[in-house]
Amino acid sequence: MLEIRDLHVTVDGKEILKGLNLSIPAGEVHAVMGPNGSGKSTLSYTLAGREGYDITSGSILYKGEELAALTPDARAAKGFFLALQYPVEIPGVSTMVFLKTALNAQRRARGEDEVDAVKVLRLVREKAKALNITEDMLRRPLNVGFSGGEKKRLEILQMALFEPSLAVLDETDSGLDIDALRLVAEGVNAMRSPARAMLVITHYQRLLDYIVPTRVHVLRAGQIVTSGGPELAKELEKKGYETITGAAA
């Protein structure tokens, strides 16, 4: 599904990713952990195609296609989804209108029929319920005045609505209370499928108790320095990055 080879990325003239390799086959969930500032969000923005994240060398293949040439909206239409570490507020635009606009924009780009307002409403309500997102939130302007946890849940709602082939979740667990964490994890698990791949960026082993990853990678200073099974996360939690990655380096 995703094949990253020797990826170098520069932001504002500074190299942040320095030869990153990562491969996620369909049907698998991979976790990326790593200290603050190691380049995790940079990786997720690069995958989404954000302006200012310049690929200086290496390649990103998604379903066998080079991503670099595609705009972010084209990537979304092709089934890529990024749940942001810091979701953005858009005043005056109701959450429901935003969801409908986005869903139909993606469908249009794929040459599919648009879904009418009533259908979108039904679809969103059904998914919102499972995530404990209220009608009131759907009516309010997008993310405006939402609590940290509410914003994160809304990201997961979007993932559920768009049904991407590849989803990257950037610290979706940060700021969630215990109940919300479980809801989000259940939402993610419900979407696991042989046709879908996911990349979960997190600082906390706890999330990985709920979402058991196929592989765990440690990102440090712009490179994947260690990889292993779910037990690697537990080991990291116990010993810290210094010991583990120090030993591996």
């Binding site: 954000r50 705009t71 858009i90 005043p91 635009v93 935003f98 606009t101 869903l103 768009f162």
Partner: peptide
Amino acid sequence: SDEQLFYCLSRGIPQDEAVSLIVNGFCR
């Protein structure tokens, strides 16, 4: 903001439509 535009784009909303959406929100 770039953040708002990128957020819309990343959800599949093309640039002009994103601007229209954000401005319509501003004028609501």
